[in-house]
Computed example of a mutant assay.
Amino acid sequence: MTIPPDTASAAVARPRERVPFWDNARFACIVLVVLGHAVQRLIYDSDVALALYLLVYAFHMPAFALISGYFSKAGTPGRRQMARVITDIVVPYFIFETLWTVTKWLVEGSANPNPTQPSWTLWFLLALGIFRLVLPYLALLRWPLLWAAVVSIGVGYLPNVDSTLSLSRTLGLLFFFTLGWWLRERDVVARLGLLRHRPWWVPASAVAVLVAAGVVAWLFVEQWREMDLRAWLFYDESYAALGGTAWWAGAVRLALIAVALLLSTAFFALLPRSTRWWTHFGQYTMYVYLLHSFVLYPFRESGILRGLDPTWFWLPVVVVAAVLIALGLATKPVRRVFRPLVEPRWPWLFADPQLAAREGHRSDPTGSRRPAQEPPPRAG
């Protein structure tokens, strides 16, 4: 962000205090991402695993998009911000798309190099790039949230908008990203004091909401399996492709958006507002996001996660493993090894190499900013 000259010295003198809650929220969301992918192979043989999977997928990516939007700007980007779209999104996307192509060729014996079709988790990188391109135009409109909702719901009626460049899923989740930006733009969190005071009934209500959602997912699991609710929660196919041929099919997505907002609110209400020993890991969620799929790939493709019995034992094991994977991939040794891939700069790519320089801090596509010199993890 370009700082006006008359406020530059004040900004340097009074650096913005980091709010632990947002790092806690980032890391909690990335744990859910890993958990959802880890559990996926169990859902074909276990109703309990499917219920957990549906609960997670009902809100985890909408919550991640909301956080990313909260830390996004809708103003005209400066040259350095534009360069960061290249270094933080475009270059890592092509690096990891190439790695996935090579991996599939080595393991599966065949590969179809096609950068317009994101491999597995890489769709979110493209989504973040498209969100950033669209947001300044939405911000010009009188009712940006309404228009974002119209796009998110309306895109499902267009069968020619598909997974190419992850456009269908990106537009499907656009409302959540825009909502995050809107909340920050209107300073809603600070004005309502949502991070200052939390009455006892707030976490109690949040637990009740999440438990109720889990119970509904479990009690009606056969109905959800029959209607393929899992596919609806991906936001990446047209309603017709999902079997929703009636004119009111968009109402299903509207209901899913409402559920995602309710569950995301409940989830955020349970997260700690103060620093924990794992809080600083929330600054490195992109490492977990881009790397965890390579860790899970052998287990998913080998079939080792199919037919595990008893579920009451193996499902908790997979859940714990997912948490440990997320923690491990955010640690400093992993970051040191994979930083050239996850956070490439490539100054040779730019006419002005200084655009790729790290000036005082690093940032990732989700909006997390941190010092260039990483502080040691805080205890407590």
Rank of each mutant, 00 (worst) to 15 (best):
P118N: 03
R358T: 14
V155Q: 10
T245R: 09
A51S: 09
L195A: 11
R358V: 15
H292D: 05
A217N: 05
H280F: 10
Q223A: 13
A372W: 13
A58F: 02
V221D: 04
A212W: 09
T2M: 14
I257M: 14
P144V: 09
W277R: 15
V39A: 01
A212V: 08
Y93A: 03
L128K: 01
A258K: 12
L106I: 11
F71G: 03
V342I: 04
R276G: 15
F220G: 11
W200N: 07
E343C: 02
Y57C: 02
I130H: 12
L254D: 10
Y239E: 05
Y44F: 12
Q117I: 14
V211H: 11
P159D: 06
G129R: 05
S9N: 15
C29I: 11
A321T: 09
E359C: 08
F338M: 05
A25P: 02
V189E: 10
D364P: 03
R132K: 13
V90Y: 02
F131G: 05
F338W: 10
L341F: 04
T285C: 05
L52H: 04
P377T: 14
A28K: 09
L296Y: 01
F268W: 14
H37T: 00
H280S: 15
V161W: 08
V318T: 02
R362A: 12
I325N: 02
L165G: 06
W348V: 13
S72D: 04
V134N: 09
W224T: 06
L128G: 00
A58M: 12
A83C: 03
A351S: 13
W278L: 13
A204H: 13
L125A: 01
A258T: 11
V295R: 03
L167H: 09
P344D: 02
A63Q: 07
V209F: 07
E343V: 07
N114M: 08
L122F: 06
Y57E: 03
H361K: 10
D162P: 06
H60G: 01
P298S: 05
W22S: 01
W247C: 01
H280T: 13
G303D: 07
G129V: 02
A149N: 08
H197S: 15
R253F: 12
V342H: 00
A65V: 01
S119E: 12
V323W: 07
F299C: 06
F234P: 00
W105M: 12
T76A: 14
R14V: 15
L324C: 12
R362K: 08
Y70Q: 03
G250A: 01
S152M: 09
P144S: 10
T87C: 00
P316S: 07
V151E: 11
D364R: 00
W123N: 04
Q81Y: 06
D228C: 01
